[in-house]
Design a protein around this nucleic acid. Sequence first.
RNA 1: GGUCGCUUAGCUCAGUUGGUUAGAGCGCCACGUUGACAUCGUGGAGGUCACUGGUUCGAGUCCAGUAGCGACCACCA
Length: 1040
Amino acid sequence: MPIELPKQYDPKDVQPRWIEFWQKQHLFDANPNPAKKPHTIMIPLPNVTGALHMGHALNGTLQDLITRWRRMQGYEALWMPGTDHAGIATQAVVERRMLEEERKTRHDIGRESLVKRIWKWKNEYEVRILNQLKQLGASCDWRRTRFTLDDVCSAAVRKTFFKMFKDGFIFRGKRLVNWDAYLQTAVADDEVFHETVKGHFWTFTYPVAGTNETIAFSTTRPETMLGDTAVAVHPADERYAHLVGKMVRLPLDGREVPIIADAILVDRNLGTGVVKVTPAHDPNDYACGQRHKLQMINILNPDGTLNENASRWQGLDRYEARKQVVAEMEKLGHLVKIEDRDIEVAHSDRSKTPIEPYLSDQWFVKMETLAENAMNAVRTGKVRFYPGRYTKTYLDWLGEKRDWCISRQLWWGHRIPVWKHSLPSDPQLVQKLGDLDATIEKIRRAGDPAAKIEELLAARDALVGDSISVRSGFMAAKYGDDVAAQRIVDEKTGEMVILVCVQGDRPSVEADLNKFGFTQDPDVLDTWFSSALWPHATLGWPDETHNPPLNGEPDPSGHGKNTVLPYFYPGSVLITSRDIITLWVARMVITGLYNMGDVPFKHVHVHPKILDGFGQTMSKSKGNGVDPMDLFDKYGVDAVRFTITSFAGENQDVRLPVGYECPHCGDVIPQSLEHQTAKPGGGAKPRVKCPKCKNQSQFSSPWFEPDPGELVARVVSERFEYGRNFCNKLWNASRFAMLNLEGYSPGPIAESDLMLEDRWILSRLATTAKTINNQLGEYQFDAATRALRDFTWNEFCDWYVEMIKPRLRDPDRRPAAQRMLVGVLDTLLRLLSPFTPFLCEELWQRLGEIAPQRGLLEPQPAASACMIAAWPALPDGWRDSSLESRFERLQEIIVAVRNVRAMYRIEDKVELALHVRCQPDVAVQLNDVAGQFENLAKTVLKGVGLDVSRPGTSASFSLNDADGFIPLEGVVDREAELARQKKEAEKIRGFITGHQRKLSNESFVAKAPPEVVDQVRETLAGLEKQLASVADVVKQLGGD
RNA sequence: GGUCGCUUAGCUCAGUUGGUUAGAGCGCCACGUUGACAUCGUGGAGGUCACUGGUUCGAGUCCAGUAGCGACCACCA
C-alpha cells in the first residue's frame, strides 16, 4: 500500500513529535568518546533580560546547522547551551519595572530582597529562552545547560579571580569611571551611548590673582567649576604666555589654582583657547591632572548630588547646582555669555540617564601581557576569523591594552571575593611588617620548616598584637594556597589597607576573616568576567577530578577525573555577531590562554545582523525585535531556518521588513516606527488599525504581552514564504516518490540500467554534495542554501522527477527507477537535514516504512534517524561534465519547443513534431532520448541528422550545434514568425559584432591569454553558424 | 574623528582568481488545474552594476577620489 501524505506540509503536526523523539533517543547528548573526533560549539550565552529575537534565531540556526552537519560527519558534536546573568542589564530591568509598578528603588527593599526578585525574573526568562531554542530545533546537549551564576561557573570565577589576584593581574585603583548616578554604579565604556541634547555653552572669567586681568574660558558643565584645580592654556599661545605660572582665584569658593600650559589638553583655536581643568570629573582633565600632578577634587556623591567639597552648594542635585552656580557667577560679574548648543551627552545604556565622569575606587585587570598573548593567538593563526576582516577589529581593540575595570556597584552578580581591613597609619610599623613579611615569604618559598615561620609570625603578632598574621593579610602560612594578599595605602587617609582574596568557597577562612574585622568588598564583577570563562568553565574547569554535572546531578563517568574538559576543549568554532568581538571574543581568548594555556576555539565565524525594515539593528531597546515564535507559528520552524540561513552571507547585513497580520481579515499591516516604540500608556495596550477592515487589534511587541483572550496581530514577513514554499516543494516531491514506491524492492542498481537522466542526476548530486561541504566549511551559509534549493527544485523536481515518470509507469523499468528515485531522495534528505531537520526527519521516517533499505547504488539499511544518518560522501567519479553538457543541450531543445508552443498559444494537448538538423553524433544522442521530447514537451522527434531541411510552414530555433524546426500547419503566422526570427538574428548579430571587435583589436590578440582568444574565436564561429541558420529561415519566410 | 562594510532588476539579495550575452527569489505580464506540489507549472518583460577618474587587450569585479547608507571604536573644554 502506498503511503498517502497530505498535499501540504504541516509543520505544527511534525515539529513537537521529533523534538520529543530526538530527546528521548539522546541524540543531542555528547560525551567523551575516544573513537570519535570532538566538535565543540559554545553558545553565545543569551542574557536573561528578555526573550530571544530574530538575531538569536539566526545565531542559533547557524550553530545548530554546523553542529548537525558535523554530527552526521561522525564527530562527537557538542553544542553547549546556557544563559548569562547579565549583571547590570538584568538588575536594571528588574529595578525599572519595580519603580514603574511599585514606585520602589532597590534601597527601599534591600540587597537580599532585590537579588531574590532578580532570581525570580531569571528563572522565568531562562525557561522561556531555552524553550525558544528548543522550538528552533537546537540540538544542544541540554543536560549540560549552564548559567553564569551557577555553582560550576562560580567556581571558575572564584578560581580565576584568585589566580589573577595572586599573579598581580588584578589591582585596586582609582580611576575616572562612567558613573551612573541613577543606578549608582560604574558602567563600562561599552555600556555608554551618546545622545544629542539641547544645552548651553557658558563663557565665564576667573580673576588672575595679583593682577587686574581676568581669563575667559567656556564650559558646558558650570557646576564642575567647584572641582577645578587648574586653568590650562596652550604653551605656544602668545595671548596667555605671560600668565602661565600665575594663579587664578575661583570666585565661587575663593580657592586659588594655577594657570598651567598643556599642549595636549588645549586646542588654542577652540573658543577662548583656555580650558578649566577638573581632573575628577572629566577624562581629558584627568589625564592632564596626572601629567601636572594636580589635586583632584571630587564634588559628587554617588547619587549625583554635590558633596562636602562643594561648599554651600553641598546636597544639591548637580543640575540644580548648575543653575545656582551660573547665577552666582553672573551676580559676581563673571558671566560673559551663554550660547545655545547641541551637546553630545554620554548616557548609561542601562538607566538611560546621563553619565557623570567620576573618580572612584575600582578593581582592574592589567591588560598589558594578557592582551599581547591574545593578540598573538590570532596573529599566529591559532584563532581564525571568518570573514577575515574582523581580525582587524579584534587586534585594534586589544592593541590599546586598556586596563579592564571589572567591578560594578551592583547587587546582582559574582561578589568580589576580597576582604579588606585597614591598619592605622604608621610608617615605621609598615616598614617593619614589610621586612618581616619578606623574610617569612623567603623562608616559606625555600621550604623551611614551618616551626621557623611560626616563630616569625609570633614576632609579628608581638609587634602589633592580636593575630596580626591574619590581619596583615599574610595568611599563607595558615591557609596555604587558599588565600592571597595585597597591601595598599589609601591615598586619602594614609591608612594601610590589607586586601585578602580567598580561593573558592572556604567558609572557615571567611569566618576567620570576619572574626578579625575584615569586611567583604560589596561590589560584584562585571558580567563579562564570568562570560569570558564560558568555554572552559562550562566544561567543569577548574575541577580536575569530576566531570561537570548532568541535569544538576553528579556525572560519575569520569571515574575520578574530569574527562569532559580535555576532550571538548578547545572548541571548534564560535559563531557570533560582530558587536561582541571585543567585549566577549577577545576576553575569552585571554582567559582561555590564561587558565587553560590554549585558545578557546579555533575559528570565529561572525555572521550578519538582522535589521528591521528601516535598516536599524534589532534590539530590545529599540523595540523592533521580532519574536521568532510568531514566525515559527506562521511559517513553520524549518521555513524560518531555511530562510534566515539563506540570508547569512559574508558581508551584508540583512533587512527584514515585517508587518502585522490582521487577526480579523488577514490583511498585512506594514510595521511602522510608531509600532516599534508603542508602549502601554496608563495600562491600555497599544493597538494597530487595519486599513482594510478597519478593526483594531493588539499586536506582538517586545515591550508587553498582549492581554489574554485578545485577538492579536502577529508578526509576519513575506520573506519567509521562500522557506515555506521550499519545504512544501520537498514535501511534495517526497510525496510523489512515496506514491510511486508501491512494489519497491531493494537491490543494487546495475550500470546498464542507468539512463542519461540517472547519470546526470548522480553527477549533479555528487557535485552539489561536494559544493555544500566546501561552503559549510567556509561558513558560506547563503551559498550552501542556494545550492541546495537549486538542486532540489530546478534539477531534482523540475527535470529528474519529470523524466523518470514514464519509467515508473513501465513495469520492466519501474524497479530500477524506484531504486534510483528513493536513493536520490535519501541522499537529498541527508544533505538537507541540518538545514530543515524537522521536515527531513518526518520524511525520512515515513520513507523508512516503505523503503527501509535503500541507497546509491547499493542498498543499505537506513539509519534510525535522519539527524544521525551518515553525511553523504559520493564518489568523484560520478561527476561527468561532458554528460552534463549533453544533458544541457536536451534541456535547451525542450525549452525552445516550449517557447514555440507558448509563442503560438498551442495547447499542451496538441502534439508537435520536431525536426533537428545536426551532426551525426548529436543525432545519435538525441535519438537515445527521443522519449523525453514526448514526455516533457509533447513533441515527437520526427527527423534528425545532417540532411534535415526546414519543412514548409514551420517555427524554428537555432542552438549552438543544432537547428530545430517545428511544422505548424495553418498555425504559423508568417509575419509573426518572420519578425521573431529577425529579432533573433539581430540579437545574434549584436553578439557577433562584439566578438569581432575583440578579435580585430590587435593588442587583445597579442596580449590576452591564447586560450581566451581561442575561446572567443570558437564562440564567434558558433554564433556565425547560428546566424546563418536564422538568416536562412528568414529568407525562406520571404524576408531579406 | 578612526576603522570596517555596503550601494547590482520594483523589493530582498548573489556574483568565487578581472574574460562569451550580469543572475536568483519575491513582485509584475501571458497562458495553464487529467494524478507530487496553485505554498504549483510553462513562457515572458524588467538592469547605462551609486558617481568620477585610473590601471588593463578587457572592469560589476582591481586602484584612487566623491556622494549616500550602516556598523564598530574613539571623542567632542
